[in-house]
Design a binder for these strands. Structure first.
Lengths: 332, 332
DNA sequence: TTGTATGCGTTATCAA
DNA sequence: TTGATAACGCATACAA
């Protein structure tokens, strides 16, 4: 690999001059510029990005940590992030955890080692100590996820309120036995949705029954399996609130397979409003998150942190919306 | 930000010693090691990755360029890549082009500037000159995509043969008027699938009719729209071969909406076997690519390139498989 | 307009 | 076991 020194030698100039030509804006006479350019071509020279970044103390790269890239929930958010990044000359790289926390930890460390300028994480499943430490000294935004009692810049919807709202809707439709599919309780967001569920039951004078709660992995397959297991358990339920659309879609599949009519015998509600939810049969009632906007806001927040500008709100709460479709209402 | 120098100063040792304790394996007396460790804690020191990488001339990071991350076709491939990378202590970062070639170009440049150790690209939609130049001097693998007359390490299935096979299947099922949904012809892979389609017609003594070819973007929406437009055109067809499952799923939606029975009035076949294809109604006949294996092979190839080891085959052709489901056969 | 020289934060070689 | 010092490849302040 040719370096700036080789180019300088071949062109018969100093490395400073080469540097100026490469940058473009420098004051260089056309004649020497030509010599240098020719040498660059001849040697097939490419400036070393690491050296340049070390000098500049910034990379213009930012990393997005995604729990699972195959969850379509993140795709629209990514678009918001990408477009905002592009407007600010930052480059987005996605780190797919496929649900391994070791990966989150690795990139948090990369951030602290200045390998990238900032991180937006959609996970928060790593030692809180590490997260706090990273957020304290480096540009880090937690999105659609958060932690209690730690002041880290974040953006999320109000999961408790949203879950309560969708359960209230099921109850208003005449359902009194709502099963709940949720995921790993170490994510606070699932805890919140569970809290919204219990709050709704309580406010409507219904009893909480532990037998109606099932823990899944947040994907179609697991939602399907847990619903079957619920059906086999013999516990009666007339509706399912899944804490994620993927789980809800799995539930619908299981119900259809068993010949249970939706929503009459069993209504289904999800959470997130992923693309597939409006396409399946029956279309899924769910909570819509303003995904694109969340992406934009998260990225703008991160850019402010990187630039050291003042941040108006360190913890943004985005607006959600109840989307009612046929999986919960036959007349719609 | 504290540097190694600050730590050395505070601990009262040289930077060499600090470097040794940070690395861990060095020969350092327990006493000084303790002093250094304490200084590191006190200053909250993190070694600078860029400096280290500049020194080592490698980053252990590799970038995967994906045309569109919301295309589920790539997710299983990514798993293969990720797991192979992990076994080799490499770290995967995904660059989502969302179909903008400028992004592909940017990261190809990053590769040439040694910002990353290697790239696997699922696109090849940038100036061929640039691609050739990058592949010539740097570790680069093109996957599920390729270019004519350029010797770049690659892995792909035989798209012509696969397309021919699936069209033969439609014809064998009694269909004689196959419409074809394809995408941007600047991707050679769509050209290949079109070639397979025409070859199949020819070999079965059927005429090629330009009116039956429709160009889409490779997604559900566009497949849906082009199918509607085809239906409105009045041209008769009894089956659709889409060059991608997403387009095929859009086609199914359009047909169902118009009350056309699948497969009797119109059969549908896709390409890729994405997850959704087995879940929709009716399940989609398609070509399965060995996605996970492609990911593993691509990554192994890249690692060989990075390590400078010999590569047995520079152009791997992976095995495909025809998957027949109800969208093309009512009795199945 | 051009060149010299220093520093960015490491690692590693060589002496001590 | 430790320290001084030379790279790694580039950018830039300053001098010429």
């Amino acid at each position: 690999m040719a370096t700036i020194k080789d180019v300088a030698e071949l062109a018969g100039v100093s490395i400073a001059t080469v540097s100026r030509v490469v940058k473009g804006n420098g004051n260089v006479s056309p004649k020497t510029a030509a010599k240098v350019t020719s040498a660059i071509k001849q040697l097939n020279y490419h400036p070393n990005a690491l050296a340049r970044q070390l000098k500049h103390q910034c990379t213009n790269n930012i990393i997005i940590i995604i729990p699972d890239i195959s969850n379509t929930f993140f795709h629209e958010i990514l678009h918001g992030i990408e477009e905002t990044a592009e407007r600010n000359d930052m480059h987005i790289l996605i780190a797919d955890m496929h649900n391994k926390t070791s990966i989150e930890e690795y990139y948090l460390r990369a951030l602290m080692q200045k390998e990238v300028d900032g991180i937006i994480s959609f996970s928060a499943n790593v030692a809180q100590q590490l997260l706090k430490q990273a957020a304290n000294d480096f540009p880090l935004v937690i999105a659609c996820q958060y932690l209690d009692n730690i002041d880290i810049p974040s953006i999320t919807i109000d999961n408790v309120a949203a879950a309560k709202e969708i359960c209230n809707h099921l109850i208003a439709s005449g359902k009194k036995n709502i099963a709940h599919l949720t995921a790993l309780p170490n994510f606070l967001l699932y805890q919140d949705r569970l809290d919204g569920y219990t709050a709704s039951l309580r406010e409507n004078g219904l009893d909480f029954r532990a037998g109606l709660i099932r823990y899944c992995s947040p994907n179609i397959k697991s939602g399907y399996e847990q619903t079957l297991s619920l059906l086999d358990s013999g516990i009666y339920f007339d509706s399912i609130f899944a804490a994620g659309d993927t789980m809800a879609i799995g539930a619908i599949r299981a119900l259809k397979e068993r010949g249970i009519s939706i929503p009459d015998e069993c209504a289904v509600a999800g959470f997130d409003d992923i693309e597939m939810s409006s396409l399946i049969d029956p279309p899924l009632t769910t909570i819509r998150q303003p995904k694109y906007q969340i992406g934009c806001d998260a990225m703008n927040m991160l850019i402010s942190l990187i630039r050291g500008s003042h941040i108006a709100k360190r913890n943004i709460v985005a607006e959600h919306q109840l989307v009612i479709r046929q999986s919960s209402c036959s007349v719609n």
